[in-house]
Design a protein around this nucleic acid. Structure first.
Length: 942
RNA sequence: GCCGGGGUAGCCGAGUGGUCAAAGGCGUGAGGUUUAAGCCCUUAUCUCAAUGAGUUCGCAGGUUCGAAUCCUGCCCCCGGCACCA
């Protein structure tokens, strides 16, 4: 009985793995390498199910690859800078450093309890000065190369978090962390010139194995658009207005120019004019508004005339210059040429302010060039009404090209590619991050801290319960002398965005203990790229863009050779659990409401699967589950419950079911080793079947189909063994050959139990975690036939069971015997001919004429045979799978196979006798040969 | 609005032209085992007058000897972006 078995001593096995250092990755000679990585976690004190899922997936891959002979780099560390620790210090006192270290210790213990196969020597933590020193060093290099810049610019400010945010960290106008409103603020801030890598970041996506939706997300964010920069003169002034457009083909329809109210020229144009007050009102309204509100407001087109006119670059006509609330200062050039006829926004604006609308495209060739415009026609079209010769009639790209060529010839513009992505704002007005290594000197400006003075360490003498950046409260930190002139100076108190930390940690892992450089180039080059990267989809645009940018930037500093950090990216699905749901209100509620009516509408609640979260109260503690069922069960459940990329529903019942499987497996070796049966023909079947399973397993693992792999190792093999035993198998020698490899298969997902098998039952030495798995040679023909024959018996049994209910209804009593009528030879011959014909590429329709000529179709049964082909055999030849087809083609004697198994079949069906006859032979008195088919005998009960 | 991903039996979910009435799991029914329950094993689980036939893979058409799978149109769900010029 399974409950009498000792539970697996998981902690004991973990200790042995550590003692024997089996997971310490090093490059050994010429073995291939494999870099398996999970997104390193923020060290909250507790491991949650999302972590467990993430690492169970990665660990399975790492263990599999290790067993297949790779040097596997599989590290773990902590993204330990960031706001939660600092906020805790502000509200509860204490120091972020202490709480972070405490939390790290506790989450590390929980992670270790799962038995993941990390090389813990390489652990890194962002807040370690030995790590963030290199952030600072990179930063000073970037300054030297013009990649890092300080600019006074409007930036996103989150009041609640008391810091600025990168564009990527603003979601729908709100802060990605606290969901508070984000305002625009003009500040001096540090930026990294990510847009200069936009094209590379865009093109690189085609060289790596990211999921399509992640690529599309990144491309959206980079926002490539092709078009032209066009310069308009200003009547009576020297300055030019440069606009960006994707539609140069509509240039002749530009009846005004619109500037963002914050455009640098705006003030110059209106200062001291009657328009100044109106402009200022618009400017102030727009500039102070949070972006969220501004976008909401943009529906209402608001504009102010500047009092000036621009000069159309090709016609020389004067067109008015307006300021519009819908023009975004930070995109393109902050100015647009307005073509009301062919742009919806411009149409609305022109209509509101009574500006002329001039059609320059028609949507159909030869369309009416003077047709009135009731709305903007924004599709590509044929040029009309061009004031210059040579344009009318041109369409689409040709039209764009012609206009661009004219602009380039006149030096009033040129083709260009514009990117939506902005420079990466990395300044944060917070304490718990990497100090930006700069000293501000009145004379010398912003001076980078020399390499010899790095790292600039975070001071301990700060006060957290203050308004503003706690770093400013440390005089020892703030007061510094200028590295270049020695004068009194002030140290930069901005720290770096924590995404800086996570943008290169994967490089650090390759050489984590190096104190002389961030990583040795030769070592990093050997391990990179990351072959398998597993983490949440929420990082698809921030972390995964920054890390790709950083890799390219470090490459250009000569620090590493790779162009891309990650090859295969797997975004694991959410862990969900049911929570109360009100269908009428469409709200998911906390589990507190279970069984109660909806608090909003008082209707009855149903339940729905929802992401595990504190607010829903539907979280499940991994610790509690491990304590109850063990780490192996939790891992098995998590891998088996859903494909890695799919969302999975946590179910206690399913977890318990998986636990039962684990208990069953726990007792498996004893059962197998207790086999005492002698050799049977089934032994060869069992070995062939298991060989087939090994192949299926490795194929599933190679495509990271972990669910299928687990299904094979933990479910299918048991079924195979059950069948083997049912068929009279039970040879201990077979068990002895099978058990070691089976241990290896289960070790990928349930490594602790696998060690018990490997060490206590299989005649093996060492640890299964350090073993190597050989893929056996493919099955030979004899083995294929063996498997097919057995499959045939299973199919016949299944069919016999289905038919029996009906048959007994006809008989009016229980059946006591059955006759299996095997298809007559001519049907098999027919099938073989047809299969051969089709295998040669023949069309199914043509086989009828071939058949008419075949010897088997001659004679008085010709009509019957031709009819049988069309009605019965034609659909059937396509239904057979490859294995069945080869059985049909081979000369497996169905009657013989069934005869050998007739006692078994009789026993399975609880019948006294089972007779086997060939249809249409003298022995066949059933008259049922007509319904037979190769591999599908008629079953006649009596 | 644009871009991606989806819609498969009571539920979850595999399935990219024939191996599909559709894997596997969960749930449910039956039998075996058991003192009993559980575990475990076997078996059933779209409909009907049942060795057959019919109808099913969001909806409606189409291509094909053959469609869950390919094509066209439509509906719905999820994610992202969004007056981005």
């Amino acid at each position: 009985m399974s409950s009498e078995l000792e539970p697996v001593d998981e902690v004991g096995w973990q200790k042995r793995w550590t003692d024997e250092r089996v997971f310490e990755a090093d490059l050994r000679g010429d073995r291939p390498k494999f870099y398996c990585l999970e997104m390193y976690p923020y060290p909250s004190g507790k491991m949650h199910m999302g972590h467990v899922r993430n690492y169970s997936i990665g660990d399975a891959v790492a263990r599999y690859k290790r067993m297949r002979g790779f040097d596997v780099l599989y590290p773990m560390g902590y993204d330990s800078f960031g706001m939660p620790a600092e906020n805790a210090a502000i509200s509860e006192g204490g120091h972020p450093h202490d709480s972070t270290e405490r939390n790290m210790a506790s989450i590390t213990a929980q992670i270790k309890r799962m038995g993941f196969s990390y090389d813990w020597r390489r652990t890194l933590k962002s807040h370690d000065p030995r790590y963030y020193k290199w952030n600072q060093w990179f930063f000073t290099k970037f300054m030297e190369n013009g990649l890092a810049r300080r600019e006074h610019a409007p930036v996103n400010w989150c009041e609640a978090c008391n810091t600025v945010l990168a564009n990527e960290q603003v979601k729908a106008g709100r802060c990605w962390r606290c969901n508070g409103p984000v305002e625009q603020k003009e500040m001096n801030q540090w930026f990294l010139d990510l847009p200069s890598y936009a094209q590379q970041l865009h093109d690189g996506l085609d060289t790596i194995a990211f999921p399509e939706h992640v690529k599309s997300l990144q491309k959206d964010w980079l926002g490539r658009s092709e078009g032209a920069n066009i310069r308009f003169g200003i009547v009576g002034r020297e300055e030019k207005i440069e606009v960006f457009t994707t539609r140069p083909d509509t240039l002749f329809g530009a009846t005004f120019v619109t500037l963002a109210p914050e455009h640098p020229l705006a003030r110059l144009l209106v200062e001291g004019t009657p328009q100044e007050a109106e402009w200022r009102a618009l400017h102030d309204e727009v500039a102070s508004m949070s972006e969220f509100d501004r976008i909401k407001n943009m529906n209402k087109k608001q504009g102010v005339f500047s009092g000036h006119h621009a000069v159309h670059p090709l016609t020389g006509n004067a067109v008015p210059i307006w300021f519009g609330n819908f023009v975004i200062a930070s995109y393109g050039t902050g100015a647009v040429m307005a073509v009301p006829a062919h742009d919806e926004r411009d149409f609305d604006f022109a209509t509101a302010y009574d500006i002329p609308i001039r059609r320059v495209l028609v949507m159909k060739e030869g369309g009416d060039a003077d047709a009135p415009m009731n709305q903007a026609e924004t599709d590509l079209g044929y040029m009309v009404n061009s004031p210059l010769d040579g344009f009318d009639g041109l369409y689409g790209q040709a039209a764009k090209d012609a206009v661009c060529a004219a602009l380039e010839a006149a030096n009033h513009g040129e083709r260009t590619v514009n990117w939506k992505v902005r420079p990466w704002l990395i300044s944060r007005q917070r304490y718990w991050g990497t100090p930006i290594p700069v000293i501000h000197c009145k004379e010398c400006g912003a001076v980078p801290v020399p390499e010899s003075d790095l790292p600039v360490e975070l001071p301990r003498d700060v006060v957290f319960a203050v308004e503003g950046n706690p770093l400013e409260t440390s005089p020892t930190f703030v007061n510094a002398s200028c590295p270049s002139c020695g004068a009194e100076a002030r140290r930069e108190t901005d720290t770096m965005d924590t995404f800086m930390d996570s943008s290169w940690y994967f490089l650090r892992y390759t050489d984590a203990l190096n104190d002389d450089e961030p990583f040795a180039k030769a070592i990093a080059d050997r391990w990179m790229m990351v072959d398998f990267y597993c983490g949440g989809i929420e990082h698809a645009q921030m972390h995964l863009i920054y890390a790709r940018f950083m890799t390219k930037a470090l490459r250009d500093l000569g620090l590493v050779d790779v162009d891309e950090p990650f090859n295969e990216l797997l975004c694991q699905g959410m862990v969900n659990k049911s929570a109360p749901f009100c269908a009428d209100c469409g709200v998911t509620l906390s589990v507190d409401h279970e069984g109660a009516p909806c608090p909003h509408c008082h209707g009855e609640l149903t339940s729905r699967s929802a992401k595990m979260s504190k607010s829903h109260g539907n979280t499940v503690s991994p610790e509690a589950m491990i304590e109850r069922f063990g780490a192996d069960t939790v891992r098995l459940f998590i891998l088996f419950a859903a494909n890695p990329t799919a969302g999975m529903d946590w179910s206690d019942a399913a977890l318990e079911a998986n636990h039962r499987v684990m208990l069953q497996l726990r007792s498996m070796p004893e059962q197998l080793m207790a086999w005492t049966a002698s050799d049977t023909p089934m032994d060869a079947w069992m070995e062939a079947r298991f060989t087939q399973r090994i192949h299926e397993f490795t194929e599933a693992m190679e495509r990271y189909d972990l669910r299928r792999a687990v299904e094979i190792s933990h479910y299918e093999v048991i079924k195979d063994i059950n069948w083997y035993v049912r068929r009279g198998g039970g040879n201990r020698a077979v068990a002895e050959r099978l058990l070691p490899i089976w241990s290896q298969l289960i070790s990928v997902s349930t490594p602790h139990l696998a060690e018990v098998w490997w060490n206590d039952h299989a005649a093996t030495t060492g640890l299964v975690a350090a073993s190597s798995l050989e893929v056996p040679t493919p099955l030979d023909d004899d083995q294929q036939v063996l498997l097919a024959g057995e499959q045939y018996i299973r199919d016949v049994l299944e069919q016999a069971r289905k038919v029996r209910v009906v048959a007994e209804r006809h008989l009016g009593q229980s059946a006591t015997s059955a006759t299996l009528v095997v298809a007559p030879d001519w049907k098999r011959t027919l099938a073989q001919s047809a299969l051969a014909f089709l295998a040669d590429g023949g069309h199914p329709k043509q086989f009828m004429s071939v058949l008419q000529e075949l010897p088997l179709a001659q004679g008085e049964r010709k009509g019957e045979i031709l009819g049988f082909w069309g009605k019965k055999m034609l659909p059937q030849v396509f239904k057979w799978d490859d294995a069945s087809k080869s059985v049909v083609i081979s000369s497996m004697d169905e009657a013989l196979v069934l005869s050998h198994a007739s006692d078994f079949v009789a026993a399975e069906l609880g019948l006294a006798t089972v007779n086997i006859v060939v249809g249409e032979s003298d022995a066949d008195t059933t008259g049922r040969a007509g319904s037979t088919m190769p591999l599908s005998p008629a079953i006649v009960y009596a």
